[in-house]
Structure formats: C-alpha cells, structure tokens
C-alpha cells in the first residue's frame, strides 16, 4: 500500500506524516499524529465528534482525505487551550456542566469556536442551528447552548477596549 508524505500545520506546529490515499484526516490525526482528542462517532459526517478547523473552515475530519491536508492549517481540540490556559468556551463548558460523558465535547468545542470566530454575538437560534451537526446524546443541549452563549459574552467582554 503506497503512502504519501503530507506536510501541514497542526495547532501552529509543522507536522509531517505518512498517509494512505484512502485514509481520512481523522485517522491520520488519531493514528499517525496520536491526537486522539478528535473522536469518531460515525465516520459518515453525521455526528460531528471529529470536528476540526482547516484553514478557518469547520470540517468533519472523517470526511476529508488525509492527503488533502497537504499545506493546510489545522486546528484541533488539543490546540484550543493557549499554553495551558483554557479557552473561554472550555471554561464555560466546565462551569455550566455542559458535558456528561464528554465524548462529543471536543467536536462541540471546535464547532463552537468556528461559530464564534465568525459570529461573536450569536442568538440562541443561531447557536442551535450551527451546532446541529454535532450530536450530543447526554445533555439535551440546554447547557451546551448556554455555555456557548456565555463564552461569546466573555469573549466580547475581553475584546472591549478599556
């Protein structure tokens, strides 16, 4: 089985890995780079547990081929905290108990970050529709939606000129 060398930037660091032509980005992240924070819940792009941000776009890593990652900038859950300081989304998920089993949480956090990157002040409806591609079976989404909205407020507050 021929494999190709892929060069990309993952969480700000240059990486090089070998990828099979049919291998998904998710498998490459998990098996080659051992970044197992991105999860496989379905492998068909329905559950969002593998959500990562590639060149600023939210994608299901299970639907992207690993060789397609050549030259891209990839953000995963492992890079969301900044030098050990939690992102406001991570902080609010913990404060509000917005996770139970925690399996969908990395995907939900990355999807939420992609939302707040482009819409710093989403309505509840906007949050719900943006996250409609991220299934959570434990929480009923109530606390997740609240955490995202409160994290958005935290980020807006932090952005305000003093």
């Amino acid at each position: 089985m021929s494999r190709m060398v892929v060069n990309a930037t993952v969480n700000g660091e240059p990486v090089e890995f070998l990828a099979g032509g049919g291998q998904s980005l998710l498998d490459a992240l998990r098996d080659e780079l051992r970044l197992t924070g991105s999860k496989e819940g379905c492998g068909t792009g329905d559950c969002g547990a593998c959500s990562v941000i590639v060149d600023g776009r939210l994608v299901c890593a299970c639907l992207m081929l690993a060789p397609e990652a050549e030259g891209t900038r990839i953000e995963t859950i492992e890079g969301l905290a900044d030098n050990g300081h939690l992102h406001p989304l991570q902080h609010q998920f913990l404060e509000q108990a917005a996770l139970q089993c925690g399996f969908c949480t990395p995907g939900l956090l990355m999807a939420s970050k992609a939302l707040l990157d482009r819409n710093p002040d989403p309505t509840e409806t906007e949050v719900r529709y943006w996250l409609a591609g991220n299934m959570c079976r434990c929480t009923g989404y109530d606390k997740v939606v609240r955490a995202v909205m409160d994290a958005a407020a935290d980020l807006r507050q932090a952005e305000k000129p003093r």
Binding site: T36, G37, I77, L80, L86, Q90, L94, G102
Partner: peptide, 20 residues
C-alpha cells in the same frame, strides 16, 4: 456546583476513551 475533577481532561481532548 463545583467543576468536575475530570473536567479539564474532557475539554482538552486528553481524556482516554475506549478507542484512544
């Protein structure tokens, strides 16, 4: 309503699930 002891692992992708 304290933060759960395993919380940080679960929001940073460090928690090891079955397939990890």
């Amino acid at each position: 309503r304290p933060i759960r002891p395993d919380g940080v692992d679960k929001v940073t992708g460090r928690a090891q699930f079955g397939a990890d």
